[in-house]
């Protein structure tokens, strides 16, 4: 049993590294994310209601829905939390690799995987996590694939900020401007055993459709391919570059411009944006449903 949902939302931080790093992306999605924290605050913001008895009713229904495991909300939370904790391990591996390359400890590079391939798998795991969590929370809305994709494309608020952070922190910074093509080609060149040795995959693989890692790799590749266009469009329409993202992170994270590669690993280890914005998304959807149902 996880922590109570109202405690998770109450305990979301208003400051700190994750929040500052996300705020540094305000230039990408201006006005979309205001870091709404607090369970009752979220009820008031989502519904616009102020009557305390009504707020109590809404909160109780939202908590009831969350606590019923069969409704899928706890699984969504688990996905958001797991992907952030395992990508931290990626950061550690990547940093060890980076230090290995730059110093006399060069033998380290033979012990740890190449960062770009690892980063590509991690990026695709985050894409898959978003897809799976979306389906756990919202079901598969609509009567057609078109309806479902429109629902997915209607992202706003903290969900859109999560995708912006995905593109910037997990795409552009570690893999550069052509991260989408690179990511896809790495995936296509990966074997099931590459996947099996990946910490992020190991964390969430039981929820990935497919009866073996070969089939799961197929699902992951297909999912990535289907959002590649959206990711490229997002970067293109906003003129995003690794440099513009890094410039906005100055003052949030200590790094020097020539140690750009370290930045990716540092972000992986210390910025838990999936968990933070994921909890915000989960709270909103629960409260929207609860408000309508009571």
């Amino acid at each position: 049993m996880s922590k109570p949902i109202f405690e998770l939302v109450d305990e979301l931080p208003t400051g700190g590294l994750t929040v500052s790093a996300l705020r540094s992306l305000d230039f990408v999605v201006p006005g979309e994310w205001n870091n709404l924290v607090g369970f009752d605050n979220t009820i008031r913001a989502v519904t616009g209601e102020t009557d305390e008895a009504l707020i109590q009713q809404i909160g109780e229904r939202a908590i009831t829905l969350f606590n019923d495991k069969s409704q899928g909300y706890q699984r969504a939370l688990w996905l958001y939390e797991t992907i952030d904790s395992t990508s931290g391990l990626l950061g550690t591996a990547a940093l060890a690799n980076k230090i290995g390359q730059d110093s006399f400890l060069g033998f380290l590079t033979h012990l740890t995987p190449k960062p770009e391939k690892l980063q590509s798998i991690d990026l695709s795991m985050k894409v898959v996590t978003e897809l799976l969590a979306f389906c756990q929370i919202n079901g598969i809305p609509g009567d057609s694939i078109g309806d479902f994709l429109a629902s997915l494309a209607d992202y706003g608020g903290e969900s859109l900020m999560r995708m912006a952070a995905l593109v910037c922190f997990d795409g552009l910074i570690p893999l550069g401007p052509d991260f989408a093509e690179k990511g896809l080609s790495f995936l296509r060149g990966s074997s099931p055993s590459d996947l099996e040795s990946n910490a992020s995959y190991k964390g969430i693989q039981e929820l990935i459709p497919g009866s073996n890692s070969g089939e799961k790799l197929g699902f992951v590749t297909q999912s990535f391919d289907s959002v590649k266009g959206w990711m490229n469009g997002f970067v293109g329409s906003k003129g995003l570059t690794p440099q513009s993202v890094a410039n906005n992170l100055q003052g949030v994270i200590e790094f020097s411009q020539d140690k750009f590669d370290y930045l990716a690993a540092l972000l992986d280890m210390s910025v838990k944006y999936y968990r933070h914005t994921g909890i915000q998304t989960l709270a909103r959807r629960l409260i929207e449903r609860a408000y309508a149902e009571i």
Partner: peptide, 28 residues
Amino acid sequence: VVAAQEKKGFAEYKVNKDGKNVATIAIT
């Protein structure tokens, strides 16, 4: 009008105008 949620006993759509969400419709 965009599909938003579809769960057991519940479905919700968003009503957007000029890209902004102005209302929701739900059947429970």
